[in-house]
Amino acid sequence: MDFVFYLISAFAVGGALAAVLLKNLVHAALALTIAFFGLALLFLRLDAQFAGFAQILVYVGAVAILVVFAILLTKGSEVPKEGVFSKSWFAGLAISAGVFAVLAWAVLQAAPSLPNETAAPAVTVNDIGNALMSRYVLPLEIIAVLLTAALLGAVIVAMHEKAGPKQSAGAPGPSLLGTGERRNS
């Protein structure tokens, strides 16, 4: 029981450490994926199927790919000659230690107030759906609006370049199946 937990934790922490320490950026991104996956396994270990699978779907399936794409599109995939640490690494260390301390303190403070249940509560996907649609409907909607706004913003950023002189005419037109030369029947 505990052994599995420690195994998964080692998996996740190892992935996270590798993501920080590896020189090659794509390797780091792949290591990050391992960390995400470990996190998902931890969720599953807690019988939180929905959260676990959503973690894989969103983080492994989308975020990791996004990271990797960003690396490839920005010429960052070359291995740096010098070390991976920046000059102000101690400041970063101090900040991360501070954040960790705050989080740890919060978790430790909150632990006694949790209901001390021996058996994990059976939370089905149905319950999550009901909760999201009733009690948490406002946060859900806000998040939806936020994401839509982000999506629109991304589209506008991408469109911006096309608005330049003459470029809009040159770009491939918006067609499902191309020219439609022969398809106009």
Binding site: V26, L30, T33, A40, Q49, F50, F53, A54, I56, L57, V60, G61, A62, A64, I65, V68, L72, T124, V125
Partner: peptide, 25 residues
């Protein structure tokens, strides 16, 4: 017979993308 079977399926399906990327890169 998983409660979130469909989600599991899509989670696994999403992971294949990464392997495709790994192969290509």
């Amino acid at each position: 017979d998983m409660d979130a079977g469909l989600l599991f399926y899509f989670a696994m399906g999403a992971s294949t993308e990464l392997s495709v990327f790994m192969a290509g890169w």
